[in-house]
Computed example of a mutant assay.
Amino acid sequence: MYSLGMTIITIPVSFMVEKDMSAWMLKPDLTLVTILYSGLLGHVFIMILYCCCLYSKGPFYISIFKPLSIVIAAAASFICLGDDLHLGSVVGGMILLLGFYSVLWGKAKEQESTKCGSENLATSTDSRTPLLRSQEKYVE
């Protein structure tokens, strides 16, 4: 649905921006290979990776990895393509990595405290008391 929605949105915008129809002709060269690779293999690979992570860890981790892909793309373009790194890219990447690490640290602490709390609740007598009591007891 995401890809279909993006396709519907980008088709009219693309035709408004590029009015020369000869630019839309695809020739069997590196451009066509790049389009097929990024459209089919790249998107399919990412969706398979997201589905595996969703199944094993839940939706929280998938939403955390989205901003991290920006840092990975900047690092890959610097290493593989020799692009320049600007100060804003480095500082932004460090802030994203710090946020990523702090969220994972907080999630690990939350799971650790949940495990400790569940052991205490099982032995407690209050674990049998309902959290929400019915209103019928308090009506006179």
Rank of each mutant, 00 (worst) to 15 (best):
M1E: 02
M6A: 14
I9E: 03
T10Y: 13
V13L: 15
V13W: 10
M16S: 09
M16V: 07
V17L: 10
V17M: 06
E18N: 11
E18G: 00
D20G: 07
S22T: 11
M25Q: 14
K27I: 05
K27R: 14
K27Y: 15
L30N: 02
L32Y: 06
L32V: 04
T34Y: 11
Y37N: 03
Y37W: 09
L40D: 02
L40V: 14
G42Y: 13
G42E: 03
H43F: 10
H43M: 07
V44T: 08
V44K: 00
F45K: 07
F45Q: 09
I46A: 14
I48K: 01
L49I: 06
L49Q: 04
L54V: 00
Y55R: 14
Y55A: 15
P59D: 03
P59V: 07
F60Q: 07
S63Y: 08
I64G: 00
F65Q: 02
F65L: 12
F65P: 00
K66H: 12
L68V: 12
L68E: 01
S69A: 12
A73D: 04
A75T: 15
I79E: 03
L81K: 04
G82I: 03
D83T: 12
D83K: 12
H86Q: 14
H86F: 13
G88C: 08
V90W: 00
G92Y: 04
G93E: 02
M94H: 01
M94P: 00
I95W: 10
I95V: 15
L96P: 01
L96T: 01
L98Q: 07
G99Y: 09
F100L: 05
F100K: 00
Y101G: 07
S102G: 07
S102K: 10
S102M: 14
L104M: 14
W105D: 12
G106Y: 11
G106D: 02
A108H: 13
A108D: 11
A108G: 04
A108V: 04
A108F: 02
K109T: 05
E112H: 13
E112G: 14
S113K: 07
N120W: 09
A122N: 09
T123A: 10
S124D: 11
T125M: 07
T125S: 08
D126C: 08
D126G: 04
D126S: 10
R128E: 01
R128D: 03
T129F: 01
T129Y: 02
P130M: 15
P130N: 15
L131M: 12
L132Y: 06
L132S: 08
S134L: 06
E136A: 11
Y138S: 07
Y138M: 02
